[in-house]
Design a protein around this nucleic acid. Structure first.
Length: 427
RNA sequence: GGCGUGGUGGCAGAGCGGUUGAAUGCACCGGUCUUGAAAACCGGCGGGCCCGUGAGGGUCUCGUGAGUUCGAAUCUCACCCACGCCGCCA
């Protein structure tokens, strides 16, 4: 949520920043917000002036009653002005709810360093690792997975539908190993606190992080209880501190969680339907940081490094993309994507997205802190990154590690967790 | 699912329908004292919004929303949440 005062003070700067998203709708929303904000302030002044007058008269009634004097002459006018206040307040509430409705649909502003343009203008800021030279044509992960008995996608489809992968045997073991490996890395070496959160969350939580109200169609909904399956553990982790005022000494708060993620992927039908590239349910280890505003740029780099460390330990070649303004997510002010190299499908696949939201989520979720004891509360800055998403990591492990004999060599870091250095085809 | 109890400021915990934004204690901030610290003492101390360059002023807020009333933390209704017991179940 944007800061109304900032919008009021310098609407041109906000509009300019939003324009970089190349989202005309956002600009229209902002204009509505500016208009409603002005209306709201006029109405507030009016209601409050009337209330102030009423309060004085009401105090006079109280004073006279205490002095055992008659106050009957004041009661009539007070009753009447009470009705007027009631009406004005109802109008005010209407305007305020419209204002909030529009404001919640305005995306975050973009940071100055973010590249201009749309998806095509994302910038590769660095590469890590060197894609292997293959003496044979590398096979796609779905062939490898089937040959190695790691997953059974047709049966997963039978259980639920397409996009709900079923891992089996060493595949299931690999998933479990990856979870332990990543959590161990982040908790022992990067200092995160491990969390095991609920997988269903309420509307307030999803509004806090920005998935609602705009992206409801992307979420699985348990309608009887009006709860939603989490699309990422960013939602429960960030919302842990919703409506709180934190002690500045607690910051930065750094959290990690291993959870499944559920995404309807509405509008993505027919895209990347093969294998594990795009699925409705996947596991992910998430990293969330709540930090002091002045730290957020540095924290963003640190966070990105934590996600990169996972891929480095797994010896997976990857590249870091600075997303262009037009490709940056609704709530994000700046995002770096980590894309792993997948030789079998001959493509780079997003395995992590590291974003800084500045105070956008903190305003929605009302997460504040006191810079020093006794000081006025300020909004924290929130950041998060996948550290990292499983399916595409598994794709990269399989496709990069595959050997001519059909086996897959695992990176050394994973051996203690999976119990073998090599996955071999079923007999 | 049934019955019961309760939701007040960072925490604990008072609160007759009218100088109560809310006693008191703790915590916290500033000060006195001290070589320093502790203790003691003095003072301050919720949050949002609006107006104001500022000092400051106004308004709202005692789970949420409606209602009664000139006036509600205090009365009524609905909802939400927490806790306890029973039932069911991992």
């Amino acid at each position: 949520m944007l800061d109304l005062r900032r919008l009021r003070q310098d609407p041109a700067a906000v509009r300019e920043s939003l324009a970089r998203r190349m989202d005309l709708h956002a600009l229209e929303q902002v204009d509505r917000v500016i208009e409603l904000d002005a209306r709201r302030r006029t109405m507030v002044a009016e209601v409050e002036a009337l209330q102030a007058e009423r309060n004085l008269q009401s105090d006079e009634v109280a004073r006279r009653k205490r002095a055992k004097e008659s106050a009957d002459d004041l009661l009539g006018p007070l009753k009447e002005s009470g009705e007027r206040v009631r009406v004005l307040e109802a109008d005010l509430r209407d305007v305020e709810s419209m204002l909030e409705g529009h404001l919640l649909n305005v995306p975050n502003t973009i940071l100055p360093d973010v590249p201009e343009g749309g998806v095509a203008h994302n910038v590769v800021v660095r590469n890590w690792g060197t894609p292997r030279e293959f003496a044979f044509t590398p096979r796609p992960h779905w062939e490898l997975g089937q040959a190695l008995g790691l997953f059974d996608l047709p049966r997963g489809t039978k259980l639920t539908g397409s996009g709900f992968p079923l891992f089996t045997g060493m595949g299931a073991r690999l998933v479990r190993g990856l979870a332990s490996f990543m959590l161990d890395l982040h908790t022992t070496e990067h200092g995160y606190t491990e969390v095991q959160p609920p997988y269903l969350v309420n509307r307030a939580s999803l509004t806090g992080t920005g998935q609602l109200p705009k992206f409801e169609e992307d979420l699985y909904h348990a309608s009887v209880d009006d709860l939603f399956l989490i699309p990422t553990s960013e939602v429960p982790l960030t919302n842990m501190y919703r409506d709180e005022i934190l002690d500045g000494a607690m910051l930065p708060i750094t959290l990690t969680a291993y959870t499944p993620c559920f995404r309807r992927e509405a509008g993505a039908h027919g895209k990347d339907t093969r294998g594990l590239i795009r699925v409705h349910q996947f596991d992910k280890v998430e990293l969330v940081r709540l930090v002091r505003p002045e730290e957020s740029t540095r924290e963003h780099a640190l966070l990105t490094g934590h996600a990169e460390a996972v891929l480095q330990r797994l010896e997976i070649p990857y590249r870091v993309l600075a997303l262009a303004a037009g490709d940056t997510g609704f709530a994000s002010a700046c995002t770096f994507d980590l894309e792993v190299w997948a030789p079998g499908v001959d493509n780079w696949l997003e395995a992590s997205s590291a974003s800084t939201f500045e105070d956008f989520q903190a305003r929605r979720a009302n997460i504040r802190f006191r810079p020093t004891p006794g000081a006025k509360p300020e909004f924290v800055h929130t950041l998060n990154a996948s550290g990292v998403a499983f399916p595409r990591t598994i794709i990269a492990l399989l496709e990069n590690g595959q050997q001519a004999d059909g086996s897959v060599v695992l990176p050394a870091a994973l051996v203690p967790y999976v119990g073998t250095d090599r996955l071999v085809p079923l007999a």
